[in-house]
Simulated assay, not measured.
Amino acid sequence: MPQITFIEYSDKSHCVDAETGKSLMQIAIDHGIPGIDADCGGSCACGTCHVIVHETWQGKLPTAQEEEMAMLDMTPEPQPGSRLSCQLTVTDALDGLVVRLPEFQM
């Protein structure tokens, strides 16, 4: 089971075991990670599951599709590595993934 680390804006870390096949957003919700609102339930219709992928992982993830990029353009503070966690499916290859949460969700 891959381990994923979520780092809150306040720098508090949460290292969780992640079930493969689920979205990163669902993993955060399942583990009660603060800062992931997921208002649209994972349908890529809002930006409230915004995460910033650690630079060492950015090139290892699938490229964001046009729909995700449009939602990220509306986030208050997009950054290099910004992704919607609903669009990232957990696989064994993501063992050790680190993501930061922004100060505010959209």
Rank of each mutant, 00 (worst) to 15 (best):
M1V: 14
P2E: 05
T5E: 13
T5V: 11
F6E: 09
F6R: 13
F6Q: 12
F6Y: 06
E8A: 14
E8R: 15
Y9V: 10
S10I: 11
S10T: 15
D11A: 14
K12V: 10
C15I: 15
C15Q: 15
V16E: 12
V16L: 11
V16Q: 10
D17H: 12
D17N: 11
A18H: 15
T20P: 15
K22G: 09
S23M: 06
Q26L: 10
Q26S: 14
Q26K: 10
A28G: 10
A28D: 14
I29C: 09
I29H: 01
D30R: 08
P34D: 09
A38T: 12
A38F: 01
C40W: 02
G41H: 03
G41E: 11
G41Q: 10
S43V: 11
S43Y: 07
A45E: 08
C46K: 01
G47Q: 03
T48K: 02
H50C: 01
V51M: 06
I52N: 13
V53I: 03
T56D: 08
T56S: 13
Q58G: 05
G59W: 00
K60T: 02
K60N: 06
K60V: 02
K60R: 04
K60C: 03
L61D: 03
L61A: 04
P62E: 10
Q65D: 10
E66S: 00
E66T: 02
E66F: 02
E66N: 01
E67Y: 01
E68G: 02
M69G: 01
M69V: 08
L72D: 00
L72V: 00
L72N: 01
D73Q: 12
M74R: 07
M74D: 15
P76W: 03
P76F: 05
E77T: 12
E77Y: 12
P78V: 08
Q79N: 08
Q79V: 04
Q79A: 13
P80V: 14
S82W: 00
S82N: 05
R83D: 00
L84E: 04
S85D: 03
S85P: 08
C86W: 02
L88S: 02
L88A: 03
V90A: 08
V90P: 05
T91G: 14
A93L: 11
A93R: 11
A93Y: 05
L94W: 04
L94T: 08
G96D: 09
G96I: 08
V99N: 04
V99C: 03
V99Y: 00
V99M: 09
R100D: 14
R100F: 10
L101Q: 11
L101Y: 07
P102E: 00
P102C: 01
F104S: 07
F104G: 06
F104A: 12
Q105H: 07
